[in-house]
């Protein structure tokens, strides 16, 4: 009898506490909702404006959806050559990612598997580059690219991007490879595998999740990189998207809706990737920092 009383009392107390907790929960959700609005509304503005006519933009209320939505702006963006810039961006980003990940994986393998002092010094030099700003090297890089005859070429943008993508990628892969049991390497060695074979048959397959994460991260970085294209190109034939939208904006100063369409177009692949593979993108973004 008395025990059940206690239980009931506890239950009541518990419910009370839970109510109090949910009060906090509501306040917390309200806070989260405010940030949700702050996040979404500018994005919505982007989308709504890109569907407006020029007149609709000048006369209408910017906070409401357009009365007569139109895709004309997107047509105009495509006609302005954005599909070409899009392909340039794809070539630059994909090449940069493939080179960064391959080179970093090779070096990471050597760093993990050898006890050479020189290699560890090299590793430490790479790590010092971790927070090195591109801006610190851009002036000599610009003059070097000019000298090499790579100004206004896609390769001229890819090479420096690879250099600056290496430190973080290397660090992440080294951290990952260290967790591969030494016995596996030794077993490969006993089977007579060379270093290249070990990387190909053991290291690469095991590190696929890391490679995907770090690859996604570097892809986003390259896709959105602005300083290298700005300084290293001026010919429209080799323009990539971030530079293209800035130039486009300069040519259409009054036509805001068409510029907004260009902005959305430039982010389209990442938006689609997020819709279909959001988890990977979120994991990729946190690569090396999260954990």
């Amino acid at each position: 009898m008395s025990t059940s009383m206690v239980t009931v009392q506890q239950e009541v107390k518990h419910n009370k506490r839970r109510n109090r907790v949910s009060g906090y929960g509501i306040a917390f959700t309200a806070f989260g909702t405010i940030w949700l609005i702050i996040t979404v509304y500018p994005l919505l503005y982007m989308l709504m404006t890109s569907l407006r006519t020029q007149n609709g933009y000048l006369m209408g209320k910017p906070w409401l959806p357009p009365l007569h939505p139109t895709l004309d702006n997107y047509v105009q963006v495509i006609q302005a050559g954005f599909f070409h810039y899009f392909l340039n961006s794809v070539v630059v980003s994909v090449s940069a990612v493939v080179l960064i990940v391959t080179f970093a994986l090779f070096l990471a393998y050597v760093v993990v598997r050898s006890r050479s002092k020189i290699v560890h010094t090299i590793f430490n030099i790479f790590l010092v580059g971790l927070a090195m700003p591109i801006q610190a090297a851009i002036i000599p890089v610009y003059l070097l690219i000019l000298k090499l005859g790579l100004y206004d070429t896609l390769i001229g943008m890819i090479f420096p991007m690879v250099a600056f993508g290496l430190p973080l990628t290397l660090l992440i892969l080294v951290n990952f490879l260290r967790d591969i049991p030494t016995e596996l390497f030794e077993a490969m060695g006993l089977d007579g595998a060379s270093d290249f074979q070990t990387v190909w048959h053991l290291v690469a397959p095991l590190s696929i999740p890391s490679l995907v994460s770090v690859g996604i991260y570097q892809f986003i970085q390259s896709w959105n990189n602005f300083l290298f294209p700005l300084v290293l190109t001026q010919n429209k034939a080799v323009q990539v998207l971030p530079l293209a939208i800035v130039q486009f904006q300069g040519e259409h100063t009054i036509d805001v809706p068409v510029t907004m369409a260009a902005v959305i177009f430039s982010a389209l692949p990442l938006i689609l990737a997020y819709i279909f593979a959001g988890r990977y993108l979120r994991r990729g973004m946190l690569t090396g920092f999260g954990k």
Binding site: F103, L107, A137, V141, A163, P167
Partner: peptide, 23 residues
Amino acid sequence: MNWQRWVMTLPAIVFFGVFAIVP
């Protein structure tokens, strides 16, 4: 270290050296 390993380290060192450290 052996020659294969030096070959593996080379590309990263060249790119990082030429386009980051030297500049």
